[in-house]
């Protein structure tokens, strides 16, 4: 089957005298390189210029707050289950009276950690989240001097009250519409049964235990 018309039939015929002289071929080759001399260079001079990110670039995560400044995350653990790299762990806790301005629901994540070395930035956690709490942003993950520092806790992940992270590029009306319907699909395709029914010869630790106290 011919997909493009760029293919060439290779023939190994004897070269003619002109071809064996190589000089015409060398000349045409040099003309090709010379034509590149004046071409526009695609270089981006990095520190002065930066390449613009796509609106849906998947970079460092953020745990959003709601419009009152309370954390949206309710430590349901769906993101941890959805995570193919098993990078997310969390510990849930019950909201005490008087903490309503801090946490939106009665249950919240006392500890929420993402191992940035494991994360593959697929965005499945964002898709799984029923509370619109976790999002991937267009921020790059900082480099660290040791591995431990790359396990990001709530101090880094939760957005600060002073400068909230803008997600308007990611949260277009189409995306919001899609996420509304997706709730049901998500339960069908990513439910826990598919993860427990694994090849018995090659069992993988399931994240269920870590979610036990939720």
């Amino acid at each position: 089957m011919q997909l493009t018309n760029r293919s060439k039939v290779v023939s190994k015929k004897e070269m003619t005298f002109v071809e064996r002289m190589y000089l015409p071929a060398i000349f045409s080759g040099m003309m090709i390189t010379f034509s590149h001399f004046f071409r526009k260079k695609p270089t981006i001079k990095y520190p002065e210029q930066t390449r613009e990110f796509s609106g849906v670039f998947r970079g460092q995560h953020v745990l959003k707050r709601d419009e009152n400044g309370a954390e949206r995350c309710t430590a349901c653990g769906l993101c941890a289950v959805a995570c193919p790299a098993e990078a997310i762990t969390m510990t849930a806790a019950e909201r005490e009276p008087g903490e309503e301005h801090l946490y939106r629901e009665e249950k919240y994540a006392a500890k929420y950690e993402i191992n940035m070395l494991r994360c593959i930035f697929c965005g499945d956690c964002e898709e799984a989240c029923p509370k619109e709490a976790i999002f991937l942003t267009d921020r790059k993950v900082d480099t660290m001097y040791n591995r431990g520092a790359l396990v990001f806790g709530k101090d880094i992940l939760v957005e600060s009250l002073e400068n909230p992270i803008d997600l308007s590029k990611r949260q277009t009306p189409e995306v919001k519409e899609f996420k509304k319907q997706k709730g049901y699909q998500h339960n069908e395709t990513h439910d826990l049964n598919t993860r427990t029914e694994m090849d018995p010869k090659n069992p993988r630790p399931v994240q269920k235990k870590k979610l036990g106290n939720s």
Partner: peptide, 8 residues
């Protein structure tokens, strides 16, 4: 070399 290879 750079210019012939579309670099700066």
């Amino acid at each position: 070399a750079a210019f012939l290879q579309d670099r700066i």
